[in-house]
Design a protein around this nucleic acid. Structure first.
Length: 488
RNA sequence: GGCCCCUUGGUCAAGAGGUUAAGACAUCGCCCUUUCACGGCGGCGACACGAGUUCGAUUCUCGUAGGGGUCACCA
């Protein structure tokens, strides 16, 4: 089999959103699974829409995800350059070739004429198609216009009747009537190619075998095929992907911050989890295994698992998967990843204590869904928040303000005299023992303790786990505060 | 509006003529438990509709409805 070559061809007009990334991922995987080549090509022929920094976003995203390209900017292969603006002089030659072979023609129509055609059409409620005014100009007219320097574009000459059928790997065979095909512009009056034209020329020149893109291109694909045929080039395999939706009606858009890959990373989603989740949006591995690393996807990916219908981006499932990835990390890896967030929650000073940091990380790891949850949940370690004494009342724990006060007084005495090992398990055992001797339920000591230590209705870890981290002095101080608040 | 595409629970999705129509997320309940979370067990919940083909259609065909895409000298 010939060498499979796929390409990711972003235009630098904004950041990478989840939909772009998924397309990129699939293109990469199709190459990998076939031992093929993955090419990165930057399509920047529209100078007006160019966005500063957009190229960096592409490179950063690829670097972060581990999706490596085999050829592209900075990694020249045999078919460069890989930035379209650096190929600008290449396309005209091909457009002219098409004119000569009778598959395209010069068009001298003015913008004004085209505009009036359009408004006429929209009044009729029909779609706009160029009226082919210049399609049959005489040789003399063309020569004269060119000589006089009249601005022109080159248009593709579409067949007037018959049908065109193309084959897509996910959508099957699709047939359209040729009369619906517009004589589209190939070369703009500035001498640069349109996207559709540059795409075909570049894909051919770069020997792309599998064209993977969003299904919004489904309706222009017949025009592509006519171009390939006109040149006598081999038509690539098409793989059109359904969109990723924000809800039932709207595609994920660049406007929405959540749709940006880099934003999700900033919010504390793990790169691996995002990649794994989006791989599953529009592709099914067949079995029931849902967890795939990039390396595993490179082996497991199959074209027949691709779906035709749009998928809604479900942040809830991503969250779940992110939590799973976090729980599967080694404590060391988690500490590493969570460090900035832990520091934010604890403050520089407390976070500098490696032992404390490690313990808190241990408490927080099984409870974390996204990293950005962390700071808020652990801030009480550094500063006891103001809290209301109703927190001491818990029906199931059988506590109220009255018996909580009793409990805290007992606990204060206990901690003041405690000489044993300052570790959660030891403390837990001792406190349960104490409960027995003063005839209270374990929970009637533990709940008030946890409340006094955290000032929160929920905390990552139980009473003695918090005490272990807080240390004896701080534990005593917080119990005294609790007693004070309960009017003791 | 023309043309093209899509349609299995709230969401992602298996299934490709005969299944009690998988699984996952979410949700609900129970258990575990020093709060929360984790974990375990269980519940609720779907083939858009109508014809046709067939002994039999979620699965094939045609319509209808709903949704999406596309109709630029943008990509």
């Amino acid at each position: 089999m010939e060498n499979v070559r796929t390409r990711f061809a972003p235009s630098p007009t904004g950041y990478m959103h989840i939909g772009n990334l998924r397309t990129c991922l699939y293109e990469y995987l199709i190459a990998r699974v076939n031992d093929g080549t993955f090419v990165l090509r930057i399509e920047d022929t529209d100078q007006e829409r160019y966005v500063e920094g957009a190229m960096d976003a592409v490179f950063n995203t690829l670097a972060l995800t581990g999706i490596g390209f085999d050829e592209g900017p900075g990694k020249e292969g045999a078919y460069g350059p890989y930035i379209q603006s650096q190929r600008r002089n290449l396309y005209k030659e091909y457009a002219v070739k098409l004119v000569e072979s009778g598959h395209a023609y010069y068009c001298f129509c003015t913008k004004e004429r085209l505009d009036s055609l359009k408004t006429g059409d929209s009044q009729l409620g029909t779609s706009f198609n160029y009226d082919r005014h210049c399609r049959n100009l005489s040789k003399e007219e063309i020569e004269a216009n060119l000589k006089a320097g009249v601005p022109y574009v080159i248009r593709q000459k579409m067949p007037v009747d018959g049908t065109t059928t193309f084959s897509d790997l996910v959508y099957g065979d699709i047939t359209v009537e040729n009369k619906t095909l517009d004589d589209q512009v190939l070369l703009k009056s500035d001498g640069l190619p349109t996207y559709n034209f540059a795409n075909v020329v570049d894909d051919h020149l770069m020997k792309i075998t599998h064209v993977v893109r969003g299904n919004e291109y489904l309706s222009s694909t017949p025009k592509y095929n006519k171009l390939y045929e006109a040149f006598g080039w081999e038509i690539p395999t098409y793989i059109h992907l359904p969109p990723i939706m924000k809800d039932a009606h709207q595609k994920l858009s660049k406007r929405n911050g959540d749709a940006s890959f880099l934003d999700l990373v900033d919010k504390g989603y793990l790169v691996e989890a995002i990649l794994n989740y989006i791989a599953l949006l529009g592709w099914s591995p067949g079995g029931s295994e849902e967890f795939f690393t990039l390396a595993e996807l490179e082996k497991a990916f199959t074209l027949d698992g691709l779906s035709k219908s749009p998928a809604i981006f479900d942040i809830e499932k991503l969250k779940w998967m992110n939590g799973e990835y976090i729980r599967r990390m080694s404590p060391k890896a988690f500490l590493e990843a969570a460090k900035p967030w832990l520091t934010e929650g604890l403050g520089e000073e407390l976070a500098a204590d490696e032992a404390v940091l490690t313990k808190i990380a241990g408490l927080v790891q099984p409870r974390t869904v996204i990293l950005s949850d962390i700071p808020e949940r652990i801030s009480f370690f550094g500063n006891l928040p103001d809290y209301d004494t109703v927190l001491f009342c818990h029906k199931k724990m059988k506590t109220d303000e009255e018996n909580s006060l009793v409990a805290l007084k007992e606990l204060l005495r206990f901690f003041q005299n405690y000489k044993g090992v300052w570790a959660s398990n030891d403390l837990y055992g001792e406190i349960c023992g104490l409960a027995g001797t003063i005839e209270m339920k374990n929970s009637q000591l533990l709940w008030p303790l946890r409340t006094a230590l955290s000032g929160r209705d929920v905390s990552p870890g139980g009473a003695t786990e918090l005490a272990e981290i807080l240390g004896q002095t701080e534990t005593i101080r917080r119990i005294e505060i609790g007693i004070d608040m309960l009017g003791g």
